[in-house]
C-alpha cells in the first residue's frame, strides 16, 4: 500500500493495522527516515519536501510491485510525507511483513534504495540563518542500487 501525505504517521498504529486479524506473519520490518538537524556540518532548522503529485504515486506503486514480485511478502506499506518538516520529524515509513525475516529485511532495504533514486521528491533545507538550498542527489544512493542488480544477476 502507498500513501503520500502532509500529515505525520504513527508507526505503532500502522504496524498494528497490518497485523490485525492475522497470525500467519512471522517477521515485520519497519524503516523510518527522519529529518536530521545537521547537513554538511551545518545546523538545519527545517526542510521542505516538494513532490510531483500523480507521478509520485505511480513510482511508489511501481517500486512496491517490484518488491512484491521478488520477495514472498504478506504485506507492504510505504508512507512518504511532503511539505515543511523540522528536525526530528518523520519523513518516510516502510513496513514489510513476511513469514521469515530475511525477505522482510531485504525487501525493506530494496524499497528504500529504489524510492530514494526514483520517487519524484526534492528536499530543500533551511539553515538557522534563513538560507535555503536544494539538496544534491548522492552518488552513494546510486551505488546502493547496484547491489540489487548484482544480486538479481547472480540469482538468475
Amino acid at each position: 500500500m502507498i500513501r503520500v501525505q502532509e500529515e505525520d504517521f504513527d508507526i505503532g498504529a500502522e504496524v498494528a493495522a497490518i497485523r490485525r486479524g492475522r497470525t500467519d506473519i512471522g517477521a515485520i520490518v519497519t524503516f523510518t527516515g527522519t529529518v536530521r538537524d545537521v547537513a554538511g556540518g551545518e545546523p538545519i532548522s527545517a526542510m521542505t519536501l516538494e513532490h510531483y503529485p500523480g507521478m509520485t504515486e505511480v513510482e511508489l506503486a511501481r517500486v512496491e510491485g517490484n518488491a512484491l514480485a521478488r520477495w514472498p511478502l504478506q504485506a507492504s506499506l510505504i508512507i512518504h510525507r511532503y511539505g515543511r518538516l523540522e528536525p526530528g520529524d518523520n519523513i518516510v515509513l516502510v513496513v514489510t511483513a513476511s513469514p521469515h525475516r530475511q525477505a522482510a529485511f531485504e525487501a525493506a532495504a530494496f524499497l528504500m534504495d529504489y524510492l530514494k533514486t526514483s520517487a519524484p521528491f526534492w528536499k530543500k533545507e533551511e539553515t538557522a540563518t534563513g538560507e535555503a538550498r536544494w539538496v544534491d542527489a548522492r552518488e552513494s544512493d546510486d551505488t546502493a542500487l547496484k547491489r540489487w542488480r548484482r544480486t538479481k544477476r547472480a540469482a538468475e
Binding site: G33, L49, H51, Y52, H80, I91, V92, M112, L115, K116, T117, S118, A119, P120, F121, W122, K123, W134, V135, D136, A137, R138, D141
Partner: peptide
C-alpha cells in the same frame, strides 16, 4: 523537468 530526486 526536474533535478535528480532526493526523497526518502
Amino acid at each position: 523537468f526536474f533535478p535528480p530526486v532526493t526523497g526518502g
